[in-house]
């Protein structure tokens, strides 16, 4: 099973290798500069557990688990 963004723990940093989302879903992320090769850091989960705040290209962005599950990262869990 691929290592996806939703399984990244707070404080961990990985590189995006594939975005497996429908074009509309992917657009809102690529618009912010998230693409293959982008390094992404998991900052913190919100108190209710979802969404999670990530940092890439110097910006903090909140992403829901459902979208994060479509973003595959380098390496293994």
């Amino acid at each position: 099973m691929a290592f996806t963004l939703d399984r990244l723990r707070a404080g961990e940093r990985r590189t995006v290798v594939c975005i497996a989302l429908s074009p509309e879903r992917a657009a809102s992320l690529t618009r912010l500069g998230l693409g293959v090769g982008t390094e992404i850091l998991c900052l913190r989960r919100t108190p209710l557990g979802d969404p999670t705040v990530y940092r890439f290209r110097g910006t903090d962005v909140a992403i829901r688990r459902r979208d994060a599950a479509g973003i595959q990262l380098a390496g293994k869990r």
């Binding site: 879903r25 903090d60 909140a62 992403i63 829901r64 459902r66 979208d67």
Partner: peptide
């Protein structure tokens, strides 16, 4: 369908 939720948090 559930829309995607991506929210930028400005400083």
């Amino acid at each position: 369908e559930e829309a995607s939720f991506v929210l930028e948090l400005p400083p």
